[in-house]
Amino acid sequence: MELSNPNHPLLKRLLLEAPGTYHHSLIVGNLAEIACEAVGGNYLLARIGAYYHDIGKLKRPFYFKENQIIEEDPHNKITPTLSALIIISHTKDGVEIGKEYKLPRQVLDIIKQHHGTTKVAFFYGKALSQNQQVSEEKFRYDGPIPQSKEAAIVMLADSVEAAVRALSSPTPQIIEATIRNVIQEKLLDGQLNNSDLTFKELEIISESFIKVLTGVFHKRVSYNIFEDS
């Protein structure tokens, strides 16, 4: 409960130095808590793990889209391989920062595992488009894949929140399809193999995410307040 206090020094740093990441982490925390409670997991651990899962971005906050307040993307000035290295490093950096602030082992595990061994697909594709001879392994996170329900749920919550936030026209149908596609991709990529999540639990998690994110992100109808009744 102490770690959930907004006045925790690390959360205050996140708010001030990487505000986009801070707000993303709050939504991921809500998603993870609700989904974890629905499948009988440690929902408090999932929420706290989500709050701190991206603290590694404090090292280079402006290399992450949610913190870019200007149009100039620093990735445009470096190679896709270096971009991927910076992105991938935020899990290792997060563990190091977490240790400095004496975060418990269970939270450090979630920080380390929340991307598993997934591929940084955007920069891998960019490297291929530039005809670079690259190894796919260099564009994958170091892992390990999630070793618990809580770590896996934080991974899924993190991925679906980012995917839905990136939608240009988020209707309820598109939001649902996006969430199910993200979860299916993680499953097929083997990222959930050690999490002990069942197919039934994945369906429950999907429904939880759909309910929350549809409420947060779907487009509202625009009403003309000056129109005569």
Rank of each mutant, 00 (worst) to 15 (best):
N5V: 05
P6M: 08
P6A: 09
P6Y: 15
N7M: 10
H8E: 07
H8R: 03
P9S: 10
P9T: 07
K12R: 15
L14V: 06
L16Y: 15
E17M: 08
A18Y: 15
P19I: 06
T21K: 04
H24V: 01
H24E: 05
L26Y: 15
I27R: 08
I27N: 03
V28P: 02
G29S: 07
G29M: 04
N30G: 14
N30D: 09
L31F: 11
L31E: 00
C36F: 10
A38M: 06
G40D: 03
N42E: 11
L44W: 12
L45D: 00
A46P: 10
A46V: 08
Y51D: 00
Y52A: 03
H53N: 07
I55C: 02
R60L: 13
R60I: 08
R60Y: 15
F62Q: 05
Y63D: 00
N67R: 06
E71A: 14
P74I: 06
P74V: 09
A84R: 01
L85A: 15
I87S: 00
S89W: 00
T91G: 01
D93L: 09
E96I: 14
E96P: 07
G98Y: 08
K99L: 09
E100Q: 12
L103Q: 03
R105D: 14
R105S: 08
R105F: 11
I110S: 03
Q113D: 04
H115V: 06
K119F: 05
Y124V: 01
Q130L: 15
V134I: 14
V134R: 04
S135I: 03
S135A: 12
E136Y: 10
E137Q: 13
F139L: 02
R140F: 09
Y141F: 15
P144W: 13
P144L: 04
Q147L: 13
E150P: 15
E150S: 12
A152D: 08
I153D: 00
E161C: 11
A162N: 06
A163M: 11
A163P: 09
V164Q: 03
V164I: 11
R165L: 09
A166C: 03
A166Q: 09
L167Y: 12
S169I: 13
P170E: 06
T171Y: 15
P172E: 02
Q173G: 04
T178S: 09
T178D: 03
R180E: 05
V182N: 01
Q184C: 06
K186A: 06
K186V: 01
K186H: 15
L187A: 10
L187P: 00
D189Q: 14
D189Y: 10
G190I: 04
Q191P: 06
Q191F: 11
L192N: 02
N193C: 02
N194G: 04
D196E: 11
L197V: 08
F199K: 02
E201H: 12
L202R: 03
L202G: 05
F209N: 00
V212E: 12
G215Y: 13
F217Y: 15
R220K: 14
V221D: 12
S222M: 09
D228A: 09
S229E: 13
